[in-house]
Amino acid sequence: MTIRSLDDLAKIREENKHKVGLRESGQGKEGAAEILVGMTTCGIATGAKETLEALTEEIKAQSLENVRVVPVGCIGYCFSEPTVQVNVSGEKPVFYSKVDEEKAKEIVQKHIMNKEILKDSVLETDYGKA
């Protein structure tokens, strides 16, 4: 559709607003979950594509329906790539560092399915934003 006014824009924003809550603070629709994978040149070079595929396959294998895998840009933590952010509705988003295919499967099985955070792989991030 073509946007002709600020009202048109506001409508589209409203339809997608749930993404903001879920990604920024974990406020989203009950049962919704998302896994964001940093997919810029640097992430891909360290294996983010394989990570993304492993996540998608595991979600399929476990027949999880409300979990989306989303390719995103990078958060600048090059030293810990590939990085993954897990957003589960009702929980604070969690960042994971150096997520290879094995760890990707573990994230789905433990974090998504059993609400068990992989403590050793958590990446502490510290920034505010505009």
Binding site: K19, R23, E24, L36, G38, V70, P71, V72, G73, C74, I75, G76, T83, Q85, K129, A130
Partner: peptide, 9 residues
């Protein structure tokens, strides 16, 4: 970098 890592480009 406000949106980097949060949105699907």
């Amino acid at each position: 970098l406000r949106n980097s890592g949060l949105i699907d480009p």
